[in-house]
Computed example of a mutant assay.
Amino acid sequence: MRSRFQKVMKNQKGMTLVELLAVIVILAIVTAIAVPSIGGIINKSKDDAQKSNALMIINAAKLAVVSNNETIMGKINSTDHKITLQDLVDEGFLDSVPQNPYLKETTYTGDKNYVTVTQAGSKYVYTVTLDNKSGTGNTTTYDEKGKATK
């Protein structure tokens, strides 16, 4: 009987507790490496979307200036040189106010999001100021090349 029991025990296949723990440790290490990397990729894609929005808005403002739109040119010639995103939509240079990539289902609203157009000699200089990641009124300004200036 005892030899039969030993024979059955030798034929059993499966993982020991130590092997199982080793697999769990390996999975934990892989997860610890992968999760921060994925988070970084998501944040980078949001940063890229923000930059793309800034460039699109600047191009809309350039088109408005080139078309010599009265409303837009009046804003440029005012003391603050600011064109709101809603102005660009109202005058037909943007289809709609873009969505803020950092805040789900929220567009750039309020007076914190605008294009500044200043004249430097015979040339216009464009910058766009948009809500940043927090959406709490802190802003980031982008130049015509999409570089964040502050």
Rank of each mutant, 00 (worst) to 15 (best):
G74M: 05
G39M: 08
K44A: 10
E70N: 12
R2F: 11
L55A: 02
V30M: 15
K112S: 13
D95C: 01
S78R: 09
S78L: 11
Q50Y: 00
F93Q: 05
D143P: 12
N132H: 07
V97T: 15
T140Q: 05
I58D: 03
T127N: 08
Q119P: 06
G110K: 13
V128D: 00
E19P: 07
T109F: 04
A61I: 07
I72Q: 13
K145A: 10
D90K: 14
S37G: 12
Y108K: 12
K51R: 14
S3W: 02
Y142A: 10
T71E: 14
V125E: 11
K82R: 15
I33E: 06
A120E: 07
K13E: 09
K133P: 06
M1V: 05
T129Y: 11
L88S: 09
F5D: 02
I76H: 03
N59S: 14
A49G: 01
N69C: 09
V18Y: 00
T109W: 02
A54T: 04
T136M: 08
V23W: 01
E105V: 09
I76G: 06
Y124W: 13
G40R: 04
Y124I: 11
N69V: 09
Y142F: 15
K13Y: 01
A49Q: 02
V117T: 01
T129L: 10
L103W: 06
L88N: 00
E105P: 05
P101S: 04
I58H: 05
V115Q: 06
G40C: 00
S52E: 12
I57L: 08
V89G: 11
D47F: 00
E70F: 07
T116H: 01
K82T: 11
P36M: 07
P36H: 09
P98H: 11
Q12P: 00
T107L: 04
K7I: 01
K147S: 08
D80M: 09
V117D: 00
Y108F: 15
L85Y: 03
G14H: 06
Y142V: 08
A49Y: 01
P101C: 08
K62W: 03
K112D: 13
I76C: 11
N59D: 12
T149F: 02
I24H: 02
L20W: 02
Y114C: 10
A49H: 01
L17D: 05
A54L: 03
Q50L: 11
L55M: 03
I58N: 03
I41A: 12
I76Y: 06
K75L: 11
G137Y: 02
K133A: 15
T79G: 02
V25W: 01
A28P: 03
S96R: 13
K44E: 05
E19I: 07
R4K: 10
G14T: 01
I26L: 13
L88V: 04
T139Q: 13
N59M: 06
L85P: 09
I58M: 07
T118A: 00
Y114V: 13
T129Q: 13
L17S: 03
